[in-house]
Simulated assay, not measured.
Amino acid sequence: MAGEEEKPLDETKSYMGIPEAQFVEDVDAFMSKDDNANNAQNVIKRLDEQLNKYKFMEVHLQAKRKKLKSQIPEIKSSLQIVKEMKSRKDAADPIETTFLLSDQVYMKANIPPTDRVCLWLGANVMLEYDLEDAECLLSKNLNKATVNLKQVDHDLDFLRNQGTTTEVTMARIYNWDVKRRRMQKAKEGEKP
């Protein structure tokens, strides 16, 4: 749209406020912190809860993505119809077409030239627009849906990265705990 610049996606952040997973470089230092207190089970439990939250968010984003993926073709189709009606509004011949009544049921129709169109807005609301306003509204909705789809795709990628980081951190802490326990058993075995 004129006057609206599309902002580039920031690869390092989420648009839905998804918390960033912390990558643990030094497990010994991480586990010695007061809130971890060298208790690997509690830390792994906390990270598992975070991982489950990421999975829940992923389900939500997948549903939003699916909805947007179905909306965009519908908006494009409506926009194309409005453009066709606009190009033929001064013609004398009616537009001969078929339209969908319900699933798998189509009906032939002759549409006389007109400068008005009715659009479903959702929530059982339909409004009548002139062709210019309808084209503007549909173009704006298409642009917004496309931008939202890009943001959802970006957030899904970001979310997958956070889940992977969390899983890697859980594995590193588990391995740290196994190593620590082995060292404790070895020390206990050395004592006379």
Rank of each mutant, 00 (worst) to 15 (best):
D10L: 04
D10F: 05
D10C: 12
E11S: 14
E11W: 05
T12L: 12
T12Q: 11
T12V: 12
K13F: 13
M16W: 08
G17D: 11
G17C: 11
I18Y: 04
I18L: 14
P19G: 12
P19H: 14
A21Q: 02
A21T: 01
F23G: 13
F23D: 15
V24R: 02
V24I: 13
E25H: 06
E25P: 00
D26V: 02
D26T: 03
D26C: 02
V27W: 00
V27Y: 00
A29L: 06
A29R: 03
A29S: 08
A29I: 00
A29P: 01
F30T: 09
M31N: 01
S32N: 07
K33M: 12
A37K: 10
N38C: 09
N38G: 15
N39K: 06
A40D: 03
N42M: 09
V43Y: 01
I44F: 02
R46I: 00
R46F: 01
L47N: 06
L47H: 01
L47R: 01
E49H: 00
N52Y: 00
N52Q: 08
N52V: 04
N52G: 03
K53V: 03
K55Q: 09
K55N: 11
F56Y: 02
M57G: 07
V59D: 11
V59H: 06
H60D: 14
L61G: 14
L61V: 14
L61Q: 15
Q62L: 07
Q62T: 10
A63M: 10
A63P: 01
K64H: 11
R65T: 10
K66W: 05
K67A: 09
K67T: 13
L68C: 02
L68T: 10
L68R: 06
K69L: 12
S70Q: 15
S70F: 14
S70G: 13
S70H: 13
Q71S: 13
I72R: 03
I72A: 02
P73G: 13
P73I: 09
K76D: 09
S77G: 10
S77A: 15
S77V: 04
L79W: 04
Q80F: 06
I81N: 12
V82P: 03
V82G: 05
K83Y: 02
K83R: 07
E84W: 08
M85S: 06
K86W: 01
K86G: 05
K86F: 04
R88H: 09
D90W: 00
A92I: 03
D93Q: 08
D93I: 03
D93C: 00
P94F: 05
E96C: 04
E96I: 12
E96Q: 12
T97A: 15
T97E: 08
T98E: 07
T98R: 13
F99M: 12
F99S: 12
L101W: 13
L101F: 15
D103R: 14
Q104D: 15
Q104I: 04
Q104K: 14
V105A: 08
Y106M: 11
Y106T: 15
M107H: 14
K108A: 15
A109N: 12
A109M: 13
A109R: 12
A109S: 12
N110T: 09
P113A: 09
P113C: 08
T114D: 03
T114K: 02
D115W: 00
R116I: 05
R116N: 04
